[in-house]
Amino acid sequence: MAKFLNTSATNFFLEELIKNAKERLILISPYLRLNDRIKELLEDKNRLKIDIRIVYGKSDLHPDEIKWMQQLDYIRVSFCKNLHAKCYLNEDSCIISSLNLYEFSQVNNNEMGILIKKDDDIDVYKDAYEEAQRIIRISDEVRISLDEVKTEKVEESPNSNTPSENIGKLTSSKLAAKHKIKTNELLDKFVELGFLTLNENGKHYLTDQGKNIGGEFRSSQYGGYFLWSENMDI
Rank of each mutant, 00 (worst) to 15 (best):
K58T: 10
D121N: 12
Q209P: 00
L198V: 02
I116P: 01
S173C: 08
T197V: 13
F195I: 09
L27Y: 07
V77T: 01
F217I: 15
I234N: 07
L14E: 06
K86Q: 11
G113I: 09
N201I: 02
I234R: 10
K45M: 03
K211L: 10
Q133Y: 13
S93T: 13
I26C: 09
G224M: 09
S157Y: 10
D147H: 12
D92Y: 13
E43G: 04
C80Q: 13
E65W: 01
P63H: 07
H179M: 12
S229M: 12
D119F: 10
Y129C: 13
S173D: 11
L101C: 00
L17W: 05
R24H: 12
E15Q: 09
Y205S: 14
K118T: 00
E216H: 11
K126M: 11
E185I: 09
E156N: 10
S59D: 14
P63C: 09
E156P: 05
N212D: 12
Q209W: 05
D36A: 06
Y74L: 04
I50G: 00
K86E: 05
G194Y: 01
Q221G: 11
K180M: 12
A128F: 15
L175E: 05
L99C: 09
D233T: 14
D120T: 13
D120V: 10
R24N: 14
K86T: 04
N11R: 09
I66Y: 03
G168F: 03
S93F: 06
I50A: 02
I66T: 00
K39V: 04
H204A: 11
S59C: 08
Y74T: 08
L187D: 02
E40W: 09
N184D: 08
P163G: 03
G168A: 08
V77P: 05
S164A: 04
Q209F: 09
M232F: 15
S229R: 15
A9S: 15
L42Q: 00
I116E: 04
Q106W: 06
E111V: 02
S97Q: 03
F13Y: 13
V55T: 12
K174R: 15
Y88G: 02
D123F: 13
Q106C: 05
L34P: 04
E152P: 02
L25M: 03
L175P: 02
N46D: 03
E130P: 00
G168P: 01
N82H: 15
M1C: 10
L101S: 00
E43F: 07
S145F: 10
A9P: 04
L72Y: 07
S164Y: 02
M1A: 14
G210E: 06
S8Y: 12
R53K: 15
K153E: 06
I181E: 09
G57A: 12
R33K: 12
T197M: 12
K81W: 07
T151M: 01
K39N: 01
D233K: 15
V154G: 01
N231Y: 14
E216Y: 09
N231G: 06
Y56R: 10
Q71Y: 05
K153I: 04
K153C: 00
T7W: 03
Y56L: 08
T183K: 14
D208K: 14
N11E: 08
T10Y: 06
G202D: 04
K19Y: 11
D208T: 10
T162P: 00
N20T: 06
Y222L: 12
I116H: 00
S97T: 13
R218Q: 09
N184P: 01
S97E: 01
L227K: 04
I213V: 06
I26P: 04
I66C: 01
G194F: 06
L186M: 07
T162E: 15
D60I: 08
